[in-house]
Design a protein around this nucleic acid. Structure first.
Length: 602
RNA sequence: GCCGACAUAGCUCAGUUGGCUAGAGCAGCUGAUUUGUAAUCAGCAGGCCCGGGGUUCAAAUCCUCGUGUCGGCACCA
């Protein structure tokens, strides 16, 4: 078996380095283990660079790391490279691989390296970021690259790979820098795994919410309406309404009061809140009668005005206001992505005004709320605590206290979380809830933000025990995040096969012949009485055709009614999931639907 | 916003190196048929070829500026 590297003290060391240093350790073979793939993909990135260099001799190279979904290499050429060129590069890679060049390693000083790569301004850029005096060079055939490794012993081991996409990327990940070309690729130890991976990607594409949203008539976008402004179609409207009403109940149960703020507020308020200064470039403004108004990008100011409407006692806290708040944010054009990233969306937003000693219990209550909903939909999610960002308001001290409060709440309840340094809102730290989409990208949905700043800026207060004026703490929170993104994720999660309690249509009724339509209508009305939507497939098509059409809408249940059913007062059910058919009396059927619709309570 | 690609009927897509009246399937409409669990048959209608400008005897096709979409990057209070 081929040994491609060894593992020593948890570190992967390639055979070149091991030989040089006389190391021994656990052998890594060329298979699909995480360690082996790390080495394989890294070397594949180098092979790609070698191919690019031979096809485009003036190419300069930045970095080519292994990432979650394969590898990439950033580079620059004077010729334009497009998606059509990937095949050509792949071919060149294969022909190099066939030559089975050894991958050799040697070390030189930083100064020697700078001399060696003096014509490659990108490599020089890389070297600026390396603190050590010595660097290693990997050489395969004519091609040499500055690299830390580890690498395969021979490029002939690279056989099963694919270049997947080409894109632009800023040098060093900074938009102030020049833009390089980035090619992504993937590699595996064997042919089957590569094939399986490509098939999995194709499978995931089928559940893309943009595709399903179009097919299932959930929502649409139109050029003439404007980018990022979704249009909800009837089916999507029904789905969304079900989600809204379930969630409304869940909020009421937890003591939230529904309120509503205006869509736009005078700019002075956004100046007080800090949004004007920190976020103004992404807000929509309008001028009327010499006054400037800002269309709300958030609902907190409105809720603050609700709080200010009366005096509050410490006994009243916590006070919880919620609103399905429509917000507008001018997102960068390139950021727009189906329902996941839009310019107008509706948040399931709430603000909790509480005392400092109530922070922890309130945070935990919200985390429980989140978990209740996520587990109902069987979502895997993770939580992230985001700390003070560069653009921020408030003193370091307040930030420290509030960040610690979030951590304490999580720690004391033994909840797992990761830290996102500098990822907080400008007014406070937050806990983000992230869900993974069909192709593995993570999207932030819910968020819990602790805020000492806005209460200060708006001089909020309540009367304490000694009748003194005390400033409350604000917790901003959203569970779904936005209906848009959440429904997008739900669509992919279920591949369009929504469970009964949320499906746009609960039942498809297929009458066998013209004479059965009347009963279909009676049944449909009875379904409305139990809050179930149905659709009658009574068109002048064959029965088979109508069943096929109904199936394709991904409706959870199809019932067929004909002479027999009418005579016996039964329905013939065809279940989407099991593809089984069975009969139920009308009474049992209605009861079943009712149970299925009501089985979920957040 | 940046790099690259793309935009043809409601939807999914054809449309050669610029050249006759821009095609197909599905969906829609009209008939015939009245069906027992995944496509009955026939006919009809449907297009500012994304929008402005330009090149050319001639533009869906070439150039240019917009708009929108896609893949990334950057951004995401």
């Amino acid at each position: 078996m081929n040994e491609i590297a060894i593992k020593k003290d948890g570190e992967i060391i390639d055979t070149q380095t091991a030989k040089e240093l006389g190391f021994e350790g656990e052998q890594i073979h060329l298979d699909n283990s995480a360690d082996a793939l790390e080495v394989l993909r890294h070397s594949t990135a180098h092979l790609m660079a070698q191919a690019i260099k031979s096809l485009y001799p003036d190419a300069e190279f930045y970095v080519g790391p292994v990432v979650k979904e394969g590898f990439y290499y950033d580079f620059k050429t004077s010729t334009e490279i497009g998606a059509g060129d990937l095949k050509k590069i792949e071919k060149q890679m294969l022909s190099f691989a066939k030559k089975k060049y050894k991958i050799e390693k040697y070390e030189i000083t930083m100064d020697e390296a700078k001399e060696k790569f003096k014509n490659d301004h990108l490599k020089l850029e890389v070297m600026k970021r390396i603190p050590s005096d010595m660097v290693s060079i990997y050489k395969q055939g004519e091609f040499e690259d500055l690299c830390r490794g580890p690498h395969l012993p021979n490029i002939g081991l690279i056989r099963y790979f694919k270049l997947t996409k080409i894109a632009g990327a800023y040098l060093g990940g900074d938009s102030k820098n020049e833009m390089l070309t980035r090619i992504y690729g993937i590699a595996f130890a064997d042919k089957e795994s590569l094939k399986a991976h490509m098939e999995q990607l194709a499978e995931a594409e089928k559940r893309d919410h943009r595709k399903l949203g179009n097919e299932m008539k959930l929502f649409t976008f139109r050029e003439e309406v404007g980018a990022g402004f979704p249009i909800w179609l009837p089916a999507g409207g029904r789905l969304r309404a079900r989600l809204e009403s379930l969630l409304f109940k869940a909020h009421r149960k937890r003591g939230y009061e529904p309120v509503r703020g205006p869509e736009m507020l005078r700019s002075d308020l956004w100046k007080t809140s800090g949004h004007y200064q920190n976020y103004g470039e992404n807000m929509y403004f309008t001028h009327i009668d010499e006054l400037e108004f800002g269309v709300k990008p958030m609902n907190c100011v409105g809720h603050i005005k609700v709080y200010e409407d009366e005096l509050h006692s410490y006994r009243d806290l916590p006070i919880k206001y919620f609103e399905y708040g429509v917000v507008h944010r001018h997102e960068a054009s390139g950021a727009l992505h189906g329902l996941f990233r839009v310019r107008e969306f509706t948040q399931d937003d709430a603000h909790i005004f509480c005392r400092a000693d109530q922070i922890e219990e309130q945070i935990i209550e919200v985390v429980d709320f989140v978990d209740k909903i996520m587990s109902t939909f069987e979502f895997d999610y993770k939580m992230m605590i985001s700390t003070k960002p560069e653009k921020a308001v408030g003193s370091d001290e307040v930030w420290e206290v509030s960040t610690q409060a979030l951590k304490n709440a999580m720690d004391q309840n033994e909840l797992a979380y990761e830290i996102d340094e500098g990822g907080g809102a400008f007014y406070g730290p937050k806990i983000d809830i992230k869900i993974t989409d069909a192709i593995g990208r993570e999207w932030q949905c819910g968020t819990i933000q602790l805020d000492f700043n806005l209460p200060e800026r708006f001089k909020l207060e309540y009367n304490g025990e000694d009748n003194d004026k005390i400033q409350p703490v604000m917790i901003h929170r959203a569970i779904l995040g936005s209906f848009e993104r959440f429904i997008g994720i739900l669509t992919e999660h279920y591949a369009g096969e929504f469970p009964m309690f949320i499906a746009p249509t609960q039942v498809a009724i297929v009458p066998v012949a013209e004479t059965h339509k009347e009963y279909a209508k009676v049944l449909s009305d009875k379904l409305i009485d139990i809050n179930a939507d149905s659709e009658i497939y009574g068109k002048n098509d064959s029965l088979n055709k109508r069943i096929r059409t109904a199936e394709k809408t991904r409706v959870p249940m199809i019932v067929v009614i004909g002479d027999e059913e009418i005579a016996n007062k039964t329905v013939a059910i065809r279940d989407r999931r099991t593809r089984e058919q069975y009969n139920l009396s009308e009474e049992e059927f209605l009861k079943l639907i009712q149970t299925k619709i009501n089985e979920v309570n957040f």
